[in-house]
Amino acid sequence: MKFWDTITGSDLTREWKAFEVRVGALPADHRAAWEQITGHLSSYSDFTGRNLMPILDGALGLLEETAADAQSAREVLGDDIEGFCAALAGGERGRGYRDRWRQQLNRNVARKLKQLGG
C-alpha cells in the first residue's frame, strides 16, 4: 500500500467498489443481509473504517459461498444478524467507537466529581 493511498483513503474506495461489484452478483436476500451486516458493523469501526475491511471481506465471502450452495442467507446467518456482527467484530467484548466515547466521558465526569468533592 502506498503512503498517498493510505493518507487519501483511495485504497479503501477501491476496495469498497470491489465489494459493490461482488454484492451485485448475489441473490436479493443475500444483498439484503449484506446491507444489514454493513449497518451493524459500522459501530465497531475505527476512525477510518480500515479495521473492518478484512471482516467485511470475510462476511461477503461467506455470503458468496452460501449463494453458490443455494442456501438462503437466513439459513446461514439466522435471525440475529446483530449478534452475528458482534461475534465477527470480536464478540460482546468488541468495543466500538460509542463504547470508547462512553468510557472516556465516564472517566472525565468521575475526575470532575473528585475535583469538586475535595
Rank of each mutant, 00 (worst) to 15 (best):
residue 39 G to V: 12
residue 31 R to G: 13
residue 14 R to H: 05
residue 14 R to F: 02
residue 73 A to K: 02
residue 80 D to R: 00
residue 14 R to T: 11
residue 35 E to M: 09
residue 26 L to M: 08
residue 1 M to P: 06
residue 22 R to Y: 00
residue 58 G to P: 03
residue 11 D to W: 02
residue 67 A to H: 00
residue 96 G to S: 06
residue 33 A to R: 10
residue 2 K to P: 08
residue 48 T to G: 09
residue 40 H to Y: 15
residue 107 R to L: 07
residue 70 A to S: 13
residue 93 R to Q: 15
residue 89 A to C: 04
residue 31 R to E: 15
residue 16 W to L: 07
residue 29 D to H: 10
residue 69 D to H: 02
residue 98 R to C: 04
residue 32 A to G: 11
residue 79 D to C: 03
residue 83 G to L: 05
residue 25 A to K: 12
residue 47 F to M: 13
residue 106 N to W: 04
residue 27 P to R: 02
residue 41 L to S: 10
residue 104 Q to R: 07
residue 1 M to W: 01
residue 33 A to K: 06
residue 90 G to I: 06
residue 40 H to A: 13
residue 7 I to V: 15
residue 68 A to M: 03
residue 106 N to D: 13
residue 92 E to R: 06
residue 102 R to G: 08
residue 38 T to Q: 15
residue 1 M to R: 00
residue 66 T to G: 00
residue 69 D to Y: 01
residue 33 A to I: 10
residue 72 S to P: 02
residue 85 C to K: 05
residue 71 Q to M: 10
residue 13 T to Q: 12
residue 64 E to M: 01
residue 37 I to L: 14
residue 110 A to Q: 05
residue 13 T to C: 01
residue 66 T to H: 01
residue 8 T to W: 00
residue 29 D to S: 09
residue 102 R to M: 08
residue 5 D to L: 03
residue 20 E to K: 12
residue 19 F to G: 03
residue 112 K to M: 08
residue 30 H to C: 13
residue 17 K to D: 14
residue 42 S to N: 13
residue 78 G to E: 09
residue 56 L to V: 07
residue 103 Q to G: 10
residue 80 D to L: 03
residue 37 I to A: 09
residue 67 A to G: 00
residue 34 W to P: 14
residue 71 Q to C: 07
residue 87 A to D: 15
residue 97 Y to I: 13
residue 95 R to A: 15
residue 87 A to V: 11
residue 57 D to E: 14
residue 81 I to R: 05
residue 33 A to M: 13
residue 48 T to E: 14
residue 92 E to F: 02
residue 97 Y to M: 12
residue 75 E to D: 14
residue 34 W to N: 12
residue 69 D to P: 01
residue 50 R to W: 03
residue 38 T to H: 06
residue 13 T to K: 12
residue 47 F to H: 10
residue 26 L to F: 02
residue 11 D to K: 01
residue 93 R to F: 05
residue 58 G to H: 08
residue 92 E to M: 08
residue 43 S to N: 08
residue 38 T to P: 11
residue 75 E to G: 01
residue 77 L to P: 01
residue 43 S to A: 13
